[in-house]
Amino acid sequence: MMKRLLVLQHLEREGLGLLSRIAQERGLIVSIFRLDLGDSLPELAKGDLVLILGGPMGIRDINHPSFPWLLDEIEFIKEALNKQVGIIGICLGAQLLAYASGGYVEALLGGTPPKPLPEVGWDTVSKSPGAKTDSLSSLLAVPLPVLHWHGDRILLPSDAELIASSSRCKEQFFKIGSLAYGMQFHIEIEDEMVFKWIEEDSDFIRSGLGVDARFVLEEQQKEFGDSTLQSRLMLLEKLFDLISA
């Protein structure tokens, strides 16, 4: 029996990227739910996998009238956790996963004196010394360059396992329970996605990188997009192995 991959999407530009390739190779039935467009959340069934994608909204937008679906999405995530459904949360998806498990977020600080400063652009994530998930840790034995695009840091619930961190943000990659993983960074991206983000999210990237943000990100994408592709695919493949167990 073919498994379903239930995709919770919050914005047109933040789509599946490389995850579409992996789902196809594994013969998964992909069902996308555009919560921002009013789609209803699905009923969970045995064997389902859940993918929660990113978006510019956040935990502090819960109860905001522009995002009435956030509360229902959090309840859906809690149900998936209770039913031991495999989950991958990316960026906003990671924040929602942590929040549904008792965590929260706060503004990511940087500079001197410290002030809210987004983490935007390519930088490495490295294995946490206390990480217990050996099959993932081995893939991060050498720091992996990934794309960052966020203004908050996650305050993890006490029972979460931290897997990897970046130089600016400790809570980059984590595990909750036995089948749920959150990544604050983006390993699913493809070139055309990033160039669209640069075009459509200009104010945000300038807040993190200054007036040259577009040039910096375009050059970084040329440097790291292709060179990290196989490493990113290997990490995604391993994640799907783990949540399908």
Results as ranks from 00 to 15, higher is better:
E192P: 00
W197N: 05
L108S: 10
S128L: 01
E200C: 03
S158G: 01
E199V: 00
I187Y: 05
D201N: 11
T124E: 15
E106K: 14
P145R: 11
W149F: 14
F174S: 04
E119N: 10
I189L: 15
R168N: 12
K196I: 00
I189Q: 13
W122E: 04
V105H: 01
E190L: 14
K196H: 09
E200P: 00
R168G: 12
E119M: 03
P113M: 09
F185T: 05
Y181T: 07
P129T: 08
G110S: 12
L147T: 01
V142F: 12
D159Q: 14
E200R: 13
S167M: 11
R168F: 08
F204W: 12
L144M: 15
R168I: 00
H148N: 06
G177A: 09
P157V: 08
Q184K: 03
G182D: 11
W149Q: 07
G177F: 06
V146P: 04
G103R: 06
P129I: 07
A164N: 03
M183V: 02
G151W: 02
L139I: 09
M193A: 09
P157L: 03
F204Q: 07
I163Y: 04
E200G: 01
F204H: 11
W122A: 06
G182F: 01
R153Y: 05
S166H: 09
I154Y: 02
P157C: 06
Y181C: 04
E200S: 12
L144Y: 06
L109A: 07
S138E: 15
S178P: 00
I198R: 08
T133I: 13
P114H: 10
T133C: 10
L109M: 14
A107K: 14
S137V: 09
S138C: 12
E190H: 00
Y104I: 00
V120C: 08
E190S: 01
P114F: 09
I163F: 10
D134M: 09
H150F: 06
D134I: 06
W122T: 02
A131S: 15
D159M: 12
D159C: 04
